[in-house]
Design a binder for these strands. Structure first.
Lengths: 210, 210
DNA sequence: TCTATTACTAGACCATCGATCCGGTACTCG
DNA sequence: CGAGTACCGGATCGATGGTCTAGTAATAGA
């Protein structure tokens, strides 16, 4: 009776609390150790209760993924190239801050936070002069570039390749092992933006088809 | 007695057969339904037996992923831009032909087939004039581009976003919903290669630092 | 021909997982 | 006060990844 916790002291379970705790658990222990039971335990409740707020475990993952997209700052107005660079840098930082996220990058990202950033990207590029087929191509190229880059970097951790394999791959062994990931990202993004910029300046009056 | 299968008729279990059957199972039913038991059943053996040839289920996945990389054709000699385009087109086609693969693209890809393609990419770019920090940057940009592009496309399947969400995202709604994935890929790769080409022609005598 | 060793197979089993059944509790509205 | 509703959770189900341990077929050595 007296041991029974008073309802008012105990925070009521909300979907927001579930998602926040899921992100914390994922950050601390990784995707493989996210369990409905463990998540419920951290929320001081039974695993069954979670299913009142959520339909499946996949829902939790979708929600958690979109939640961290909310951390990506949306740049203030400015030159389109600076805006894009800033958005992508923040995006990449968020993905790397939550390494479990890269394992979830398959699956449609249709949450409000993800859609908001994508909309910003589209709008920025449209304002910069991209139109027709160039607009989705440019937007997807950039989005693809961040997610792919973060995926590669986050997956690479844990030691280099065994020497036996690398003996047959001289160029790879010489340049590919340890390198500055930040520089690689910035430099690669530079290539992409350079190519995009030359396209938009040359074709600012319309969109090419081939 | 007579029902007992003769040993000679029954094919002996090899790691190669396991991997081949795993790829077939993944192709047919997807990653979620790959089970050691189900895989064993298809091979007409017990699930325990698989663990003699393989340490964990993750091993099977690593092996299967590298196996399909073996399907990616390595281009014959030619201009570097054509070689890169051909390699990436084949790479992308393979990933899309085995949609489960994009969910495995986190995790280090250190199998012989993956390393071989990466080595080819490095070597081609090195021969094209990329050096210093530009070499890993260019190679990673391209690898990142294919994997990210295939991931986005394979994950997007299954219907567009609910209209309620899209109402707040006009630019996205207008251009982003249905588009030609092949064209988007080719065009985006064009941006990237354009940017890379201008870099290598201008700096063919050395590598820049900024 | 007997025996020891090696390569391989598999049934029973364990802890754990996602998800559900069904019985509760507490608050609200009439 | 009584009925309805939003929320909670113990027990449980089927399935999973992986191990223990007992086995079998084939070969090598004497």
């Amino acid at each position: 009776m007296w041991l029974r916790p008073r309802k008012q002291e105990r925070q009521t379970l909300t979907l927001g609390r579930i998602v926040a705790e899921a992100v914390a658990l994922l950050d601390e222990e990784g995707a493989a150790r996210l369990t409905m039971r463990r998540l419920a335990e951290r929320l001081d409740t039974g695993s069954t209760t979670l299913y009142w707020h959520v339909r499946t475990k996949d829902d939790v993952l979708d929600l958690a993924l979109d939640a961290i997209f909310g951390e990506v700052p949306v740049p203030r107005p400015g030159p389109w190239r600076a805006q894009v660079s800033e958005l992508l840098a923040g995006w990449r930082a968020t993905l790397l801050r939550h390494p479990w996220s890269v394992g979830l990058l398959d699956r449609p990202m249709m949450g409000p936070n993800a859609l908001g950033r994508t909309e910003f990207l589209y709008a920025t590029l449209a304002a910069a002069g991209f139109s027709g087929a160039d607009l989705p191509a440019a937007a997807h190229s950039l989005a693809t570039f961040v997610t792919g880059s973060a995926t590669t970097q986050a997956g690479e951790r844990g030691g280099a390749a065994p020497p036996e394999h690398l003996r047959d791959h001289p160029t790879l062994a010489e340049h590919g092992l340890d390198h500055d990931w930040d520089d690689t990202f910035t430099r690669g993004l530079g290539y992409l933006l350079d190519g995009m910029a030359s396209r938009v300046t040359r074709h600012s009056h319309g969109s090419g088809q081939g």
